[in-house]
Simulated assay, not measured.
Amino acid sequence: MTTTLADARVVTPEGVHDGWLTIEDGRITHVGRGAAPGPGHGLGGRYVVPGFVDIHNHGGAGGSFPTGDPDEAGRIAAMHARHGTTTLVASLVTATLDSLSRATSALADLCEDGVLAGIHFEGPYISKARCGAHDPALLREPSVPEFTGLLKAGRGHVRMITIAAELPGALDTIREAAANDVIAALGHSDAGYEQTIAGIEAGARVATHLYNAMPQLGHRDPGPIAALLEDGRVTVELVNDGVHVHPAMLRLAYRAAGPGRTALITDAMAAAGVGDGSYGLGPLRVDVVDGVARLADGPGAGSIAGSTLTMDAAFRRAVHELGLSLPEAAEVTSLTPARVLGLADRLGSVSTGRQADLVVLTEDLRVAGVMRRGAWITEP
């Protein structure tokens, strides 16, 4: 079956043009300019952008990936899909090894079913000094044997692990991750400039939510941020929700890293798509007030605890707050994170041969329709 989307403003890596595209067997087969050569689904001049790729997401729709509940995880993925996220990595938080292993095994089933694109361990190998919304009592020093045990539970679906480079055993664990095609990310870390460079040299290739949960830039003590921004091998995650990072600092990071090394993420937790209230994030409780999630109690009470962001909102903010063009916004929400996952040859852009993961946006960049693998999730 062939589907033609006509009368669209198509956002490609090369620019924005009035045109059309055809989809067959879940893939884009043609991207054309001007009027479609035959009848099609008219979009009324609305934008077509690639489906969003979120590589750091803890939950939404009232649910949380760390519980490992398959039904809950399915609801989370469905809610984010309605907001345009067609490729989603499930992020876990610090917990006991048994809890992590059980959740990983359960989520691996959803990866095999194509609901999720992988699993991300944010903890337990992170710094107590920079643990944020993680239970400090459950943090551990990195261990290669422990890590390989978690990999076995994931059955090939563990895609990323966040590690503090300064911890004993961190560099060996980063090397082990790289050897197993798992992305090592540096974050929740008290590392200095040189320690961060050592982590990159060991194989780390992502900065977990740059600026947050790490020492800040200093003109005599540059710290991890400078090391992560200046190394062309590192992709930096940014939470563009108006809470985690000031827009000026987001623009600074973007100018340093460029669209090819900037990946917008949600870092979403259970309240995303729902609203204010009290929620769980792993073993901790989080209060959400006016859309801002903070730890409710314990040593880190008041710390930011994830976000209520969805990727469509991150896309809008990229255009309206950061001044990105539509192709640039599509790159940082789709193509670059797809590249991080090694999937840029399959998805992440509106290009011939790519998977037909598409988001239809109105003039004010609101979601009007979502297609995944050639099938409408929400039909415009």
Rank of each mutant, 00 (worst) to 15 (best):
V48A: 08
V49D: 04
V49A: 14
V49F: 07
G51P: 06
F52N: 09
V53S: 09
V53Q: 10
H56G: 02
H56I: 05
N57C: 15
H58M: 07
H58S: 07
G59Y: 04
G60T: 06
G60E: 08
G60A: 08
G60Y: 07
A61Q: 03
A61D: 12
G62V: 04
S64F: 02
S64K: 00
S64M: 09
F65Y: 15
P66S: 06
P66R: 05
D69M: 04
D69R: 10
P70H: 00
P70L: 07
D71C: 01
D71P: 00
D71N: 04
E72R: 08
A73K: 01
G74V: 03
G74A: 06
G74E: 13
G74M: 10
R75I: 04
R75H: 07
R75T: 08
I76K: 07
I76M: 05
M79P: 03
H80Q: 15
H80T: 13
A81F: 07
R82A: 14
H83Y: 15
H83F: 15
G84P: 09
G84M: 11
L88W: 12
L88V: 13
V89E: 12
S91Y: 13
S91W: 13
S91P: 13
V93Y: 04
V93I: 15
T94D: 14
T94R: 10
T94N: 12
A95D: 15
A95Y: 12
A95L: 13
T96K: 10
T96F: 09
L97G: 08
L97K: 12
S99C: 05
L100D: 11
L100R: 11
L100M: 15
S101G: 14
S101Y: 01
R102M: 06
R102N: 08
A103M: 09
S105P: 00
A106M: 04
A108H: 06
A108R: 02
D109Q: 09
C111L: 02
C111M: 06
C111W: 06
E112M: 03
E112D: 14
D113P: 00
D113A: 14
V115W: 06
